[in-house]
Amino acid sequence: MTAIDTAAAPRRHSRLQTWLAWLGRKTRIHTRFFLMLMALTAGIVIECGRPSSWRRPVQREFWRVLHFALKGSLVPTCFIALVGGIGMVYQALYWLSVLGEEASIGNILVAVLVRELAPVLVGVILLGRAGAVTLTELGQLHAGRQVRALRMQGLDPLLFLVMPRGVAFALASYTLGIIFVLATLLFGFVAGSLLGIADMSIWSFLDNVLRATARSDFVLFPLKMLAIGLMVAATICMTALAAETHDRLGVLMARGFVRGILAVLLTSVLFSLMV
């Protein structure tokens, strides 16, 4: 090796290091939100299992958020279930009766409604109603330096603000998911019966759906609903609490909505891949 070659080796090495550093920096910047979101979600899951985390103000906050999340999302959920029932269950009943394949109604409804549509639609409803309220509450909190006030009083923002919202959203999502599925099936069947398409009893129809439901669905559906609720809450809280003081509420709302939709879709896809 000549003297020139030995001098070029460290330079090549240094160029490689610079390139790796650049790549790492870019990757870190672009995955920062995702990694923080995962850390926050893990924090919520870990902390909610500790009895000492559930102090009196935290419990109050949990019940308050659960109340407005359920109350605010119940009517939209029922309305969309009505539209979905007529648009999907009735249509499925109609076309399967034309083809003489009424027996496969359960398989179709479980595959489309229970596994895919219900989690995504409930996630979007929760995001639009309770998520927007939460984003406004926490966004204002950050802008008004109330987070500092909380910390000065020794109140952990994760325990007091984020954890109760995460658990409340998860439970609300699960509850709304059950309501959505039952209401969609019921509205669709009633519409089919009134229009003379469904020539079976409600019990046969529900039995058909129940028989088509796999054992794994009884585990994955609740898990999926809980995870979607949790991810909506974590995304919203993260967006609000990571905001800069100059961020306007409108910008935060748009950012939170896009991130929330992505979180709902990604969580849903992830759980669908597990089946």
Partner: peptide, 9 residues
């Protein structure tokens, strides 16, 4: 606190 720090919700 100078900024009051009240939680409006």
């Amino acid at each position: 606190m100078a900024s009051a720090g009240w939680l409006r919700f």
